[in-house]
Design a protein around this nucleic acid. Sequence first.
RNA 1: CGAGGUGUAGCGCAGUCUGGUAGCGCGUUUGGUUCGGGACCAAAAGGCCCCGGGUUCGAAUCCCGGCACCUCGACCA
Length: 479
Amino acid sequence: MAKAKQEFVQHITPRDENFSQWYTDVVTQADLMDYTPVRGAMAMKPYGNRIWELIQAALDKRFKETGHENVAMPMLIPESLLLKEADHVEGFAPEVAWVTQGGSEVLQERLAVRPTSETIFCTMFAKWVHSWRDLPMKYNQWCSVMRWEKTTRPFLRTSEFWWQEGHTVHATAEEAQEETLQMLEIYRELCEQVLSIPVFSGQKSDKEKFAGARATYSVEAMMQDGKALQAGTTHNFGTNFSVPFEIKYLSAEGDLKYCHETSWGVSTRLIGAIIMTHGDERGLKLPPRIAPYQAVILPIAAHKGGVTERCAQAAEALKAAGIRVKLDDRDNVSPGWKFNEWELKGVPLRLEIGPRDIENGVASYMRRDTYEKGTIPLDALPEGVNALLEDIGRQMYAQALAFRETHTKDVHSYEELKEQVQGGYARAMWCGKRACEDRIKEETGATSRNMPFDQTPIGDTCVCCGEHADRVMYFAKAY
RNA sequence: CGAGGUGUAGCGCAGUCUGGUAGCGCGUUUGGUUCGGGACCAAAAGGCCCCGGGUUCGAAUCCCGGCACCUCGACCA
């Protein structure tokens, strides 16, 4: 028995022995994705894609509640459009894939496969915005984009990835800033409440901000190897794009004015964040709100009196209560086999119903987050399951938060910083100079992540150069 | 992109040095017994040996070029 189990566990590399290998093992064995013949591009399989659909649904609801509408834009962008904003083209040019031929005809102007859609949105906004009555214009699209990345890793960085990109146009700078922060807050709430991932929310440095943005904000998560992962970003463009693209409106006072714009996005990278935040030795651990199956029902000794029927009844009752449930009635694998498989796939709650349970009028359960076991009365199954799922989501957040807290430290010297970023976040005072960021990157491998909104100083000298500093900045090695 | 490693049945691997009929374990299929933490017996199926060239009578094996994954760097809205 013990031997057989060990053989199984060997399929997944131990997490603390080789985190990268563990990640790859989990991603493939939990059946989330597969590699394709296209360099760096993955295929999302049904189980992984379902997670993305659930994230999409949660976000789309929030976007609509805050007055955004979905649109669809072309995937090809003429080169001349990409060239209009200097910083933007400089930032993206190295990783653009180009279409140079249509059918047998060589194109006069090559077309970029979108790496992001600011330029095409801006071009259309210039046509669509005329008057202050047209504003604000708050659009979003769900699509895939392509960036010719040098190194790729499933979900975290792939040459093609799926995301949403919001693009909004506003009359005033204040409104654009408000939008930028509102969307950041939606991302924070999504990460923490829906995905159970604690994040640091704050502003990026000039060095790390988006190509073409006036200000960039991010939510930064921490993976279980102590590295940071940027989970989402929002950008305030000010008039950086509206000037070259000539997006102007006639104000109520009759003046022609440039618009203020924002953009914001999260991607399938969030799935990578879920895996690396919550996963353990047995595999994936999914937050209940985005788990394709929130509970799995396993019949025990299914051939015995009433088991099959009670399991089917239980599944129906849970479905009726809106719970995503899977009845695993396969008769070709043993219960023990199923236990391991559903743990690998991260299902938050396992329910077992066997002759003994039926006798006692209960279902036995095991939580995926803590491995804690117990029973729920069969006649109150939906209520019991719902309560457990909610608690599992909270508990997973608490666990992740505890990890982050033990791997985050205030540092007051360069030596301390150097040591802390080997395995976590360092919170430090920073003078604001690019030279210090560059030196830290060069010497420690860590980058500035973001400046939290709570800027209560923890000192008054820069952790790097020792000169006067008035900003609090998180530094960490990042994916 | 640089250095190193790996690629053989669905999965894990041996075989490669020293060229000569493609192997093992698990899984799969069928039948039977089982069923509360990866069950057992019996029979069977399953291979462009990562891809493309080359050397050779003959290539999983030798040579050249690609691709993918892993490790460490570099780069990176």
